Simulated assay, not measured.
Amino acid sequence: MRREDLVTLPSPDPRHDYLVELRAAAGPVALRVRYVPDRLILDPASLARHTEGLTGGLEAVALALLDDLANELVPRWLEVTASAETPLPHRVVAEDRQPAWDNPTLLARLERI
């Protein structure tokens, strides 16, 4: 039920590894989603709608979003970062990937946490 508002579209070319990065907010929580698509990509507007319904601490929000996106997109690689500045600076990074996927050259280019 929670995932109904996530809209997926076909990847323009599933033969290639490429990185998608999206940013959104869930109240005071800043969210960054980075993924390497497989067959599907996410409609960015649907992510904005979806994050409005996420509640809880940073850990709960990051893991719920990771679970929702992993199930709907089945990306090759997925990372969700949730951060907030109050009451103290706090960041949670959650990652998932398909078991047989690896592209160290692409992942090495990513800005690290």
Rank of each mutant, 00 (worst) to 15 (best):
M1F: 09
R3V: 12
R3K: 10
E4Y: 09
D5K: 11
L6P: 01
L6K: 04
V7W: 09
T8D: 06
T8I: 11
T8P: 02
T8M: 06
L9N: 04
P10I: 03
S11Y: 02
S11V: 08
P12I: 03
P12W: 04
D13K: 10
P14M: 05
R15G: 08
D17S: 07
Y18C: 09
V20W: 03
V20G: 02
R23I: 12
R23N: 12
A24P: 05
A26E: 00
A26F: 00
P28T: 12
P28F: 10
V29M: 04
A30T: 05
A30V: 07
A30G: 09
L31M: 04
R32P: 03
R32V: 12
R34N: 06
Y35V: 07
P37Y: 08
P37A: 10
P37R: 05
D38P: 00
R39G: 07
L40C: 08
L42I: 03
D43S: 09
P44V: 07
P44E: 11
P44C: 07
P44I: 09
A45I: 11
A45T: 14
S46P: 03
L47D: 00
L47T: 01
R49W: 10
H50D: 06
H50F: 14
T51I: 05
E52C: 12
G53N: 09
L54V: 10
L54K: 03
T55H: 14
G56M: 04
G57T: 13
E59G: 07
E59Q: 09
A62I: 04
A62N: 07
A62E: 01
L63E: 15
L63N: 13
A64Q: 06
A64P: 03
A64S: 15
L66S: 01
L66G: 03
D67V: 05
L69G: 04
L69Y: 00
A70P: 02
A70S: 13
A70D: 11
N71D: 15
E72T: 15
E72W: 05
E72Y: 00
L73V: 08
L73H: 05
L73K: 03
V74D: 12
R76V: 07
W77I: 05
L78Y: 01
L78K: 01
E79K: 05
V80W: 01
V80M: 04
T81P: 04
A82F: 07
A82T: 09
A82H: 01
S83M: 11
A84K: 12
A84P: 02
T86S: 13
T86G: 06
P87A: 03
H90W: 09
V92K: 04
V93G: 03
A94D: 08
E95Q: 14
D96A: 15
D96R: 15
D96W: 15
D96L: 14
Q98R: 15
Q98L: 15
A100K: 09
N103Q: 08
N103S: 11
P104I: 12
P104A: 08
P104K: 06
L106K: 06
L106A: 05
L107Y: 09
R109P: 01
L110S: 04
L110V: 02
E111Q: 14
R112Q: 14
I113E: 14
